[in-house]
Amino acid sequence: MGYIKNLTSGVIEMRKHHLQDKLVLLVSFLLLTLFVFAGGSIAAASSGPMEQLQKSVDEILKILNTQELKSPERKEERRQLVLNVVREMFNFREMAKSSLGQSWNTISAQEQETFVGLFTNLVEQRYIGKIDSYNDQKVIYTKKLVKGNKAMIYTAIVDKDLEIPIIYRLQENDGKWLIYDMKIENVSLIVNYRRDFDSIIRKEQFAGLVEKITKQLEKTETSN
């Protein structure tokens, strides 16, 4: 009898423990939810560089993952949708300027405008070409550095079981963080274009560069 009594009290004891565990679990769950929501609202209110970048990237991924847009006849529409997001992410004027280096100051305002347009299209070509071949790659965020109105966001794309590191360099302007350079596998887009453009400008001056970009864009346009 004593044995059974012991056993039942043991069970009751266990149930008590069980209840306590459950209570702890419930409280911690509530706290966690509170944290997550509070954290979410704080993040939305301040909306740092990481949040803004992530939001834009998520938007692009959403477009790319939309099943209806994957058909070949809607390819152009899909491209346009992606480009609409991309145009809000990059500071193309700043990028065009720094890609030209010293030459920027030697050209007229009109020429600067033309060049920004050409440069934008060139970068879009490179970017959109990569996006066309998108196949369920994952984007991961690894590190964020913020200093004043500048930020660096370390990300990686998991492509075919390999992590390709991409670092974005952003600058804040009126609460909006815009990308002004990015490093893919340590290769800075701006530096690379500056060296590329330099090679042309040295031989054919700015006029030659404009002509070359225009030709290049026409070529890719027709090959698409």
Binding site: Q125, N192, D196, S199, K219, T220
Partner: peptide, 10 residues
């Protein structure tokens, strides 16, 4: 290479 102007330099 197709979105570079001087692919060699790039």
């Amino acid at each position: 290479t197709e979105t570079a102007l001087d692919p060699y330099a790039a």
